[in-house]
Nucleic acid binder design. Structure first.
Lengths: 202, 202
DNA sequence: CGATTCTTTGAAATACGTTGCAAAGAATTA
DNA sequence: TAATTCTTTGCAACGTATTTCAAAGAATCG
């Protein structure tokens, strides 16, 4: 026996470094050098753990996806009423600017996914999960008679997720006409109306 | 006097070539070579007309934006009723797959815009115009008593544009859970509900 | 045709990023 | 401490994309 492996640890560092590097430089301008810099190690070390950068990007995508989703589930599960749940879902779905590296990473990957089946599959996964999350909340609200949906729960959920995605995209794009506050309000207004239930995003 | 300049013509060719190249390779993988190939000329010629590729990208962005927007305006203006107008706006707003190079270009540029004020400003311009377009249609529908909006026209318009953007993004991303047909229906359902007016996207 | 100006090209020079690798460094055990 | 294995580094070699430019080609006019 000899020196023990600590690859899991380092790889974790690199995944975070990759996310930060993408947030700063974008997927287009991403260089090995940037990842190394963010991780505080040399280019050689990055290659040692990830001979193929694509593998690192896949891991980073997975991490961003998992973190973003589970963070929401966690917050939502801490709420009692469906009403509170939906407010929290909105709040976590469209976080305040400046947008975190998780979200930046996810939106950088969108167009990339159009040319890469692996990433496209992950995009689909996140979409499905988020739709399911809203669907569960709506069904819960129906059970407790809090909500009176005017449409199929799935249709509402899909529309809500789409709204979230769009506003987050525009926030990432620095569209000056869109603010996080306004985005949350639009989503909130939509859900409030279609679920026939009063609540605000604040 | 001597040989006349024909730069305007060639530049136009290059703008289209750039859009096609971006649609194929993405903004990340874009090479001078690809643009030259699409335009059927040499790399040297591309540099002759656009010493800075960034300038070409700005032009391509402008072209994609203008074409996408004015195409919609044109189609919408040909309709008599507000009801027909909104159906056409939806149809042109979420075109069938495969997505044209205009839309691909626009979505490739979204995250890029986050790091580039010039592109960010153009994104904002397109957003504003599209919101205005829906707003005008809604107001027209109100005048003719076709629509009975449950919310402020601007709020509805912003929500509609956001939905469009999101679905188009997912279509560009090859999200298997989203189809153009389904996207149009979701948008149609939203507008139909909030405007208290019957119409379908087909 | 000859002069002039615009256009196109291909190649050399240049710049930049990745890959591969040898060597040094660090952690653990016998 | 010596042996072993894992880790880190820096650099040379390499590949690829952009920049630059001289020279040839094309269009127009006098």
């Amino acid at each position: 026996m000899a020196r023990p492996k600590e690859q899991t640890e380092r790889r974790k560092d690199l995944v975070q470094a990759a996310m930060d590097a993408v947030a700063v430089r974008g997927l287009s301008g991403l260089r090995l050098k940037d990842i190394a810099q963010e991780a505080g190690m040399s280019i050689g070390s990055v290659s040692y753990y990830y001979p193929e950068i694509e593998d690192l990007l896949v891991e980073a995508h997975r991490e961003a996806l998992e973190r973003f989703y589970w963070n929401r589930v966690e917050h939502v599960d801490q709420c009692e009423s469906a009403q509170q749940q939906i407010v929290v879902a909105i709040k976590e779905g469209i976080p305040d600017e400046p947008v975190t590296s998780d979200l930046r990473m996810l939106y950088e990957l969108h167009t990339y996914a159009g040319r890469n089946p692996t990433h496209a599959a992950m995009m689909t996964t996140l979409w499905d999960r988020e739709v399911s999350l809203y669907e569960r909340i709506i069904e819960r609200g129906v059970s407790s008679k809090t909500f009176s949906p005017k449409l199929d729960a799935r249709v509402i959920a899909e529309t809500a997720v789409a709204l979230e995605d769009s506003f987050n995209l525009h926030l990432v794009s620095s569209n000056e006409a869109v603010t996080a506050r306004m985005a949350r309000e639009r989503l909130s207004t939509y859900l409030s109306g279609v679920l026939a239930c009063e609540f605000t995003s604040d």
